[in-house]
Design a protein around this nucleic acid. Sequence first.
DNA 1: TGATACTAGGGTAATTCGGGTA
DNA 2: AGTGTCCGAATTACCCTAGTAT
Lengths: 64, 64
Amino acid sequence: MDSGTTYSALLTPAEVARLFRVDPKTVTRWAMSGKLSPLRTLGGHRRYRREEVERLLAESSEQH
Amino acid sequence: MDSGTTYSALLTPAEVARLFRVDPKTVTRWAMSGKLSPLRTLGGHRRYRREEVERLLAESSEQH
DNA sequence: TGATACTAGGGTAATTCGGGTA
DNA sequence: AGTGTCCGAATTACCCTAGTAT
């Protein structure tokens, strides 16, 4: 029942940027350097996996 | 729409949109530009082949 | 037959892309 | 080395009303 009308496993560049408090362009650079492995819309825009982003967030708070 | 429990070889615009984290209208644009080849219901609504959509999803996460 | 959710279509904002720069 | 910003072009998101799907 309603298996995800509001939830998505993918995040937009702006959403990732808000989580890290950086500019979306910086998120793009992380992707280009291989630190993130996003998929692409058919128009070429990046979509990031929530699971991957949250894992990196957790790791970054461990080592502080 | 019961998209979580019932399997179908055809996907609605909303289902495709959720997979790519885009607006359903964007999926329509992909169809109009030839990036997707949907069927049409007798009333004119588009239905997308799951096989085609999943193939494009897989390709989008490859590195190139 | 009615009720509700979704889609088509068109228009107009808002994001994102890529490159270059500070 | 890592970010933030400016730019133009391209892509995507949100607004509406009428018609379709279930």
